[in-house]
Simulated assay, not measured.
Amino acid sequence: MSTAGPRYPAVQAGAPLIVFDFDHTLYDGDSGGDLVSWLVRRTWWRTLLALLIAPVAGPMIAFLPTRRRGVGAFIWAGTVGLHRRRDLDELIDRYVVLHDAQLRERLLPVALAVLHRHREGGDRVVVATGAPPELARAILAFVAHEDVPVVGTAVGPRLFGVMATRHCHHEMKMTMLREAGFTGEIAAAYSDSSADMPLLRAARRPVVVNPKHAKVDDFRRELPAGTPILNWGCADRGGDPV
């Protein structure tokens, strides 16, 4: 899925590397959760299947060691009968087209302005997300007209459906960024999540945006003094208003 968008200067070798998280950073909410909810509600039997696995899979999402399996279980419930990653990508594109207005409201104008400024300055910008990469890519391309490279959770065929095979989360997010060719010093990183502490610590300029209120003190303790902690428009989140 692609669409015409702003023209930016070509990225030169050695340009500063800028990394954005997606959920609660560029997007007000959990984009992957919204997608999975739509996937499982497409038919009554998928909804029933998701309800049956929820007592086991739901609690798994709350804990880092089991999060990938918990997320993957619900993706599987929404994709039983699909056999290729491309099938899920096509469903994601359909979801984005059908929910254009709602997704447009979820994208944060302040965040998009910051992303736009970096790209106008010739920086090398990448989005790194725990959602499937096609989801963030499609939302940004179709709704915001931004053709930004995206690194995200890998999915593949499993048990007659499609499941997460590698979760782009915590330390793995750094690994997957490097494997995708985004090497060298990270000039700036933007994220809401304490799970992205490895990414924020690696950045020359970490910026915390829209953190949970309960996590603000953790960020202040773990990151360098003076690290900006900002609110870019998530009403139920912390940070200094912009």
Rank of each mutant, 00 (worst) to 15 (best):
E105D: 14
R201T: 08
R42E: 15
L49K: 05
V209F: 04
A214W: 07
G14M: 07
G58Y: 07
W232S: 00
R41S: 10
A235D: 09
L112A: 01
A154N: 04
W45V: 07
R220G: 05
E179A: 15
R69F: 13
A138M: 03
H118S: 12
D192C: 06
D240C: 09
G33C: 12
R69M: 10
T175M: 07
A15Y: 02
H24L: 10
V96K: 00
R117G: 15
K215Y: 09
S37F: 08
W232L: 03
D34I: 11
F22A: 00
A187C: 10
S31C: 15
E185Y: 08
A54R: 06
R85S: 15
K173T: 02
R104Y: 06
V40Q: 02
T227V: 11
P241T: 06
N231F: 00
T227R: 08
R104P: 06
A214T: 13
H213A: 15
M163N: 02
A203W: 01
A15H: 00
A113M: 09
D100H: 15
Y190H: 12
P133E: 14
I61W: 02
V208E: 02
E185H: 11
F160E: 15
T153C: 09
W44K: 10
L17S: 01
W232Y: 11
G181A: 09
V114A: 14
D23P: 03
A111I: 01
L135A: 02
D217V: 09
D100I: 05
G184C: 04
V71F: 09
P16I: 07
I53Y: 06
L112Q: 04
P133G: 11
L39T: 02
R46H: 05
V19G: 12
A50Y: 04
R204V: 14
P149Q: 07
G184V: 06
L35G: 05
D100N: 13
A187S: 13
R124F: 10
K173H: 03
R41K: 14
H169Q: 00
P211D: 04
D147M: 04
Q102A: 15
D192M: 08
Q12C: 10
P228N: 07
W38C: 07
I92V: 15
